[in-house]
């Protein structure tokens, strides 16, 4: 009897431990997923406005983290002020990037545009290295670092911040595109640029706006994830590529799709790293990308295209 009870208790303990582990993976997946989702959304916004795949997207995330660090560490601004100031700063950088690189290259073909954004990415990384140096820097968490214990899983409070802020960013973008005149104009632009021009939409301004918006939400993601991951001049590359995977996974051009893609990618990656192999963690995202491309190239929610002859 006694032995049986002990076994039962042990089983229960194991079960709780297992639950805790699963939750831990789930939360880490959700956290990364939320960040990927926001970056993917940033990709999508620029892609829809300009047809450009912006390889400098990850650099906006990095700038968000670094600018945040500057405001908090050197200027000792309170976190909410620093956070919003960061978003505004990086949005302005986004506008400048568009104005100085994408706009002058109006007639360039797609490969040239991709290379230009790669150039921007290298340039921004170089600037960041010049300003902030090569060593990773730490940013204090928004509200303390005592973990919250939830069903056997220890959760960093910053994770809650990541989820809340990325969720707000997603809702904000969806609201922006659905209910504001600018957002509607941008959607019109994405469908047919010529027609949008004909009905009097100022496409150039919209492109600026899309870069601002895209850079802004990416910066928010960077600023909020930095207390967990540390910030460094080269953090953007991998994040940018993962966000890109998420955008493709969801269907390039689809906002809801990229959010979905981000979360799916984050969670699959977390469980893959936890249960299969942590050293191949980064490979999972790209493996998923390949599988999706080969099975359903238009992504989960993207629309197939018809060749025009």
């Amino acid at each position: 009897m006694g032995g049986g009870l002990l076994a039962l208790i042990n089983l229960r303990r194991e079960k709780i431990a297992l639950m805790g582990q699963i939750l831990q993976f789930l939360f880490s997946g959700l956290t990364n997923g939320a960040v990927y989702a926001v970056i993917a959304l940033g990709f999508t916004i620029i892609y829809n406005a300009t047809d450009v795949i912006n390889f400098a997207q990850g650099e906006f995330v990095m700038l968000g983290a670094m600018v945040m660090y500057t405001f908090v560490h050197f200027l000792s601004w309170p976190i909410p002020v620093a956070f919003f100031a960061t978003i505004i700063c990086v949005s302005v950088i986004g506008i400048l990037v568009e104005f100085f690189t994408i706009r002058p290259a109006k007639n360039a073909d797609i490969i040239s545009l991709i290379i230009i954004t790669i150039g921007v990415s290298i340039f921004l990384r170089g600037v960041a290295m010049m300003i902030w140096g090569k060593d990773p820097v730490a940013i204090p968490p928004f509200t303390g670092s005592t973990p919250i214990v939830f069903m056997g899983a220890a959760i960093d409070p910053q994770i809650i911040w990541v989820l809340v802020i990325t969720l707000i960013a997603m809702i904000f973008t969806q609201w922006f595109f659905k209910y504001t005149i600018w957002g509607k104009a941008m959607r019109a632009c994405a469908v047919n640029k010529k027609a949008a021009k004909l009905v009097g939409i100022k496409v150039e301004r919209l492109v600026s706006l899309s870069f601002a918006l895209s850079a802004g939400i990416s910066a928010a993601a960077g600023a909020v994830i930095a207390p967990i991951t540390f910030a460094s001049y080269d953090m953007g590359t991998m994040l940018g590529l993962k966000g890109f995977c998420a955008a493709v996974l969801g269907g390039l051009g689809s906002g809801v799709g990229s959010i979905l893609g981000g979360f799916i990618l984050g969670i699959l990656e977390a469980f893959g790293a936890g249960y299969i192999s942590s050293s191949y963690k980064d490979a999972f995202a790209f493996l998923i990308l390949l599988i999706v491309l080969f099975l359903k190239p238009q992504g989960l929610l993207g629309q197939g295209e018809v060749d025009k002859l």
């Binding site: 360039a108 073909d109 040239s112 290379i115 150039g119 921007v120 340039f123 990384r125 600037v127 290295m129």
Partner: peptide, 20 residues
């Protein structure tokens, strides 16, 4: 010295804008 990547990026951008 350390800032060569920065110039490298700049050259890329300029060449692609003016000589696509």
């Amino acid at each position: 010295s350390d800032y060569d990547v920065l110039v490298y990026g700049l050259i890329l951008i300029i060449v692609m804008i003016f000589m696509p």
